[in-house]
Amino acid sequence: MVEIKKLHENVANVFGGHSEHTIMIKTDGKLYGFGDNHDGELGLGHKKKVSKPTQIKLEFPIEDISKIGPAYRFTSILTNDGILYVTGSKARTGFGSDLTEFAQYPQFKNNNTIIQDISCGFDLFVILTQDNQIWVHGKFNGIKYKNSPIIRKIQTGTNLSNGLSTYNQMKCCDKNLIFFLQSNSYLTQDLEKLLKNGYISDCEIQDIPVHKILIETRIGKTFDLIKKYLESNCKLNEIQDLLKWIYCDQMINFKRTNEILNHFGIQNAQKTKLLTNDLKKLLFDEQTSDFKLVVKNEEEEDEEELYIHKFILAARSGLFLNMFQNLEENFQKVKDYSGKSLETIELLISFLYTDELPITADTDQEFIKEEFEDIVEYYQLNPRIPMMDIFEKYSKI
């Protein structure tokens, strides 16, 4: 503890867990470790206990590290490009041999599997791949390591093939308990239905109905340029995988989708190109808007026109989906008859684009909360959205 206090000003991040050793990144941009090292879990090339932070040498830059998992008698490192490295006891890493330095995990080394997440318990090591396979090594549901380390793919009670139940993160607790966290937000669920059913699409790529504004916003190029490249250079399943990322922030084929995105100048898409960030650019944007919602402004005793986008309204509101499906395509404006205030409608629209409520200290929260209690029903939003819980969450920020 004394050593940590001396170094605290120079420490950028500390990683611990079900372990008797600690890994840290210091402000000099280097990786250090100290503590028990009986099985080479510090990756220092030996099995001697280390009482002071000692630099760990890796074959890749520190900037490439996505996650570090110190656990009992072993340590794992996941890189940004989905490669897994481990060091330490064979009985817990599943590597097949004891290691005193970090080496690439052999199970996925030769088949180009991309690892999305890792988590470590005391006697449990769980790996989640990009294509939603779950691999476990250690004590879990009767699976126990013996003389020969075994890593096994497990099945869950969730149907992962329907596109609405994919995972993006795991948490291990104690020895044999795993929590799987679903990646789909209410926003991505609604947009995925829009893609799947082709509702109110205004263009096509390889005969797949899509929505021009969303495609251009996410890729950052003109639709015609995007369409031409995809239809000339990509297979149908590759286009479908790209659309999965565009509409849902999910990558089925990590490597190929990134190659396509790199062609359009998008690097490290999973880290920097988030769907909500892109949709925030469209919020109330007059230049890209293709529809206006006219709302009565009680304070000014006049009407305000809110610039919005049909694909968002259709994806998130059953009321607008029915309206767009049954009215002429050139229908460009509609008046809001919910009877709610302009502030409430603006908050609602913000939520439809981002799954967030921009509530501030100046917001009359009690008034807004009362109005939200029936506005969800009026606009026929996804009934699974716990709107009051979301309101409570953002009202406390």
Rank of each mutant, 00 (worst) to 15 (best):
I4T: 05
V14G: 00
H18V: 05
S19V: 06
E20A: 07
M24H: 00
K26H: 08
K30Y: 06
Y32A: 08
G33Y: 06
G35H: 09
D36C: 12
N37A: 05
G40D: 11
L42A: 09
G43R: 04
H46R: 14
K49H: 13
P53G: 04
I56H: 04
K57E: 08
L58N: 09
F60I: 09
S66T: 02
I68S: 03
G69K: 03
A71G: 15
R73K: 12
F74D: 05
L78G: 03
L78Q: 04
I83K: 15
Y85C: 02
S89R: 02
A91T: 00
T93V: 06
F95G: 07
S97D: 10
T100D: 15
E101F: 02
Y105T: 06
Y105N: 08
N110V: 11
I114V: 13
Q116F: 04
D117T: 03
G121D: 09
G121M: 07
L124C: 06
V126P: 08
L128V: 07
D131H: 13
I134D: 06
K139S: 13
F140C: 02
I143W: 04
Y145K: 10
Y145I: 11
K146M: 09
S148D: 12
I150W: 03
R152C: 03
Q155F: 12
G157S: 07
T158P: 07
S165A: 09
S165L: 04
N168L: 03
Q169G: 06
M170R: 10
I178L: 12
Q182E: 13
S183T: 08
K193L: 11
L194V: 05
L195Q: 06
N197Y: 15
N197K: 15
N197P: 00
Y199I: 02
S201P: 00
E204G: 01
I205C: 10
V210L: 05
V210C: 10
H211I: 07
I213Q: 10
I219W: 08
G220Q: 01
K221N: 10
T222K: 13
E231I: 01
N233G: 02
C234H: 01
L236S: 09
E238T: 05
Q240A: 00
L243P: 05
W245K: 04
Y247P: 08
I252N: 13
L261D: 01
N262R: 14
H263S: 07
F264S: 05
Q270A: 05
T272Y: 15
L274T: 14
D278F: 00
D278M: 11
L279K: 08
K280H: 02
L283C: 08
Q287A: 15
Q287C: 13
Q287L: 15
F291Y: 14
F291P: 01
L293W: 01
V294I: 15
V295P: 02
N297H: 10
E300L: 15
Y307E: 11
K310Y: 06
K310N: 01
S317N: 09
E328W: 04
E329A: 07
Q332M: 14
K333F: 07
D336N: 15
D336W: 10
L342M: 12
L348Q: 03
S350R: 05
T354A: 01
E356G: 04
Q365I: 14
F367Y: 12
I368K: 01
Y378N: 06
Y379N: 11
L381Y: 07
N382R: 04
P386C: 12
M387L: 15
D389H: 12
I390D: 09
F391C: 05
K396S: 14
I397Q: 12
